[in-house]
Write a protein that binds this DNA or RNA. Sequence first.
DNA 1: TTAGGGTTAG
Length: 405
Amino acid sequence: MSSSIPLRHLRQLSTTAKSSITISQAKTKLRTEHDPDKALEIYTSVSEHYSSPTSSRYAQDLTVRRLAKSHRFADIEKFIESHKNDPKITQEPFLCTLIRSYGRSGMFDHAMRTFDQMDQLGTPRSSLSFNALLTACTYSKQFEKVPQLFDEIPNKHGVSPDKVSYGILIKSYCAADKPEKAIETLRLMEEKGIEITAVTFTTIFNALYKKGNGEEAENLWNEMVKKGIEVDAAAYNVKIMYVHGGNPDNVKALIEEMANAGLKPDTISYNYLMSCYCMNEMKEEAVKVYEGLEGNACNPNAATFRTLIFYLCKNEDYDKAYKIFKRSVEVHKIPDFNTMRHLVEGLVKKKKMKEAKGLIRTIKKKFPPNVLVAWKKVEEGLGLASSDRNASSVPDDEEAKEATA
DNA sequence: TTAGGGTTAG
């Protein structure tokens, strides 16, 4: 019977068994894997089963970020360059991800070189790769170079800037704290008849609000509405962001305005409302927002849990905080180190030892090893340190800060 | 499906 299975099939099976993780499993693993070597391993175990471009790009991006965090630039280069041997390199979107990855690592020179290599690689150029190059430039925080590229590249390579190219240019001006140049660019787009979307406007609102120029931001908002541009949740969230430090009624009013305009407030909108209640010592209302998320077709994100648990701890409502913490574990969104420290210290203070120990057990499973060194100190301070010896190095506060899951 | 908002600092 078994002889009916051809050998090559068996071989295939064994190969699959060795690298049998799906792209979505890889994504989940990569999110919590901070060791760059292991991240690389996860990535390669799946890259053969290239499925959706979006997923692959995301996995590649995470891998590069892990390497970049460890300053392993030679490895990043090796990793990205190896993709140039892939037959898909002649597809512009594939090459664009490489350009952006270099940008993310702060390796703009390599991004530029990859863009220049396109003729040699046989990849056609359009505004897509031009935009990838501009993005790499902003990722590398070389904002002043974006206008320069904007002047040089289109003529040199026969690509024409589109609404996205202009969007990146505007973003660069905003990032360089020059909103007036951003508005100038907006006017240029009008002259040239390039579509201006809510995205473009939102970039500028944000910059204006940040500069304390709320009035001009409001004027621009009205201009956008008058133009009949479809406003979306992200645009509203910028507005909400700049009022959420004050009276919760203002946030509520904006959320209502969104709903009336046929827009669905999202998790970010509700997070602002919840934070605003927290800051105004309105605990019940804050919890109500959290509990109402699902009914509003929203899922709590890491920030939701972090903010709410922190404020509940501040109010010494450790029972509620612990309950919500358990939910955050279920959905793999455990808050950061400091929030967890407040919670465990509070639980011990209230003699909730069972809960404190439960929390510690979970943390040990979920936090990356480098953070566990600092966590050990917390346990010791509480007299809860377990017997295993682990004081191998000095706790690093910077590492602890990055313990967000 | 490449540009925008949130990952506050408590």
